[in-house]
Every structure is written in structure tokens, then in C-alpha cells.
Amino acid sequence: MDLKETDILGSSIEQHWYYRSKAAAMRRMLQGIDGRKILDVGAGSGFFSHHLLSHTPASEAWCVDISYGADSDAITAGKPVHYRRSIESVDANLVLLMDVLEHVDDDVGLLKAYIDKVPSGSCFLMTVPAFQFLWSGHDDFLEHKRRYTLSQLEAVAKDAGLTVRQGAYYFGLVFPIAATLRLLPKGAQPSPPRSQLKRHHPLVNAFLKTLCSIELPFMGANRLAGLTVFCLAQKP
């Protein structure tokens, strides 16, 4: 996750409806996938690889992010985590790019670079923010370059040389709420660059988590709308 949002949520991130639900959706997309060795690209705090180490048979993770001050190593759930500013190659069978591709000018080029670093057969799980018309000051704050449709993300995966296994939107039930809030008239001034992620009242947080849990069993069939695009692909 983005380190800017780590600063906002602090230790409450595990309970925040958005990240808790997104982690659950990630695990669902990875059902049946051998993800014992993880390469987490643009990992930031490493939230998603830490989650997999704690809740799945995953045994080791490499978190790569240019924002790290120096290379280091740690332990999560008794399993090794390697924090690196860059990496040449790694024997990983699962590559995570969780909200990464929207930050770079050349998304296909970045994806190709990491495809070359892992063995054939490795799976790639990518997420990006959905729909350009939802652009707001939140995107400016996180320095996004674009938002995607599902077909656009799948096209990026294919252009980079991956075989798409599954694609879907998620956060479909909260999509109407978020879209309404973002599209409400705000006067002549554009939305200021600031994160829309915040700590909610426990009742609000619980309500939003419930909506997402209701949607979760059906997410694989959602190719219509949501706040996030998921794409699972594989290196031939």
C-alpha cells in the first residue's frame, strides 16, 4: 500500500473496511494459485504480502520499493521478508502489483521488466483504480497517471506478454456511493489533492465491510463496475 496512506491509517489499517476487504478479495482471486514465494512490487508498507504470509501457506516475500531508505530484512508470522530498493531476479511464483501501474508513465514497460525477473509459470496479481471519470483530488494526492477499465488492464497484461486468467471489478456495492460523492458539483474549484481515505466511525466501517463481504462471493463475475480492477495473469 502507498506509504502516504500508511501515515493516515497507522495501526488501524488491518481493521479499515477498504484494506480488510481488498485483502479478502486478493485471497479469493488467488484461490488455487501457488503463491508460496512472493515478489511484492511497489510494496510500500508491504501490507498485502504481510497479509498473505499471515493467512496463507506463503513462506517468503520480497518487497521492492524505491522509497525504502536502505535494504533490510525482517520476520512476519515467523517467515522472512526482504525489503529491497531494487531486485535483479528472484525465484518467486507470485508477483503482486497492488495499485502500482497507475503511478508510472509506461505501465506495459514496468510490467515487462518484472516478467523478466521471475520464472515461467509465475502468476501476477494486479490491481488499479477504476474509471477515469472518477478522477479526483485523491488521485492527484497519490500522484496517479490514470485510472483503468477492466478491458484496459487486461490489455496491458496481454501487451506485456502475460496470459490473462481472470479479471473483475471489486467494490461494486460501494461504487454508487463513491461515484455520487465524487461527481457531486463542487463549484468552480477543482478537488484539492488530498487522500479520501480516513478513519471512520466503527458503525460506518462495519457497514462498509458488510457490503463488501456480501459482494465477495460474486466478485469473479463482476465485469460491470467497481472502484478497483483486479487482474490475475500468468507468465507463459
Results as ranks from 00 to 15, higher is better:
Y148P: 03
L134C: 07
A155R: 07
Q166H: 10
G137I: 04
F133M: 15
D139E: 12
Q152M: 15
H138M: 13
H144G: 02
Q166T: 05
T163G: 14
S136C: 03
T149M: 03
F133P: 04
Q132V: 14
R147E: 11
A168K: 13
Q132S: 15
A160L: 08
G137Y: 09
L134N: 06
A155P: 00
W135S: 05
A157N: 03
F131H: 07
F141I: 03
R147L: 11
L134S: 05
F131S: 06
Q152N: 09
Q166V: 02
D139Q: 02
R146D: 12
V164L: 06
K145D: 12
A155V: 07
L142A: 13
L142E: 12
F131A: 10
L162S: 04
A157R: 02
S151P: 02
L142G: 09
E143D: 10
V164Q: 06
D140H: 01
G137K: 01
G137P: 05
A160S: 10
A157Q: 01
E143H: 09
D139W: 04
K158R: 15
Y148M: 05
R165M: 15
E143R: 00
L142M: 13
L134A: 06
L162M: 03
V164R: 04
K145A: 13
A155N: 11
L162D: 01
R146F: 10
F131I: 12
D159A: 14
F133N: 14
R146M: 11
Q152L: 13
F133G: 10
H138L: 13
D139Y: 00
T149H: 01
G137C: 00
G161K: 06
T163V: 14
T149L: 05
R165W: 08
F133I: 15
T149V: 11
R146H: 11
G161A: 04
L162H: 02
D139S: 02
G137F: 09
V156S: 03
F133L: 15
D140L: 11
R165C: 12
Q152W: 09
Q152H: 09
V156T: 10
A160R: 01
V156Q: 04
D139H: 01
D139V: 04
L162G: 06
E143A: 10
T149E: 08
E154P: 02
A157S: 09
T163Q: 15
G137D: 12
K158T: 15
V164Y: 09
D159L: 07
D139C: 04
S136N: 07
R165D: 07
G137N: 06
A155L: 08
W135C: 00
S136M: 02
A157L: 06
H138G: 12
A157I: 08
H144K: 00
T149F: 07
Q152C: 11
R165Y: 08
S151G: 00
D159T: 11
L153P: 03
L150Q: 03
S136Q: 00
L153W: 06
D139P: 00
G137R: 00
V156M: 06
H138F: 13
T149Y: 02
V156A: 07
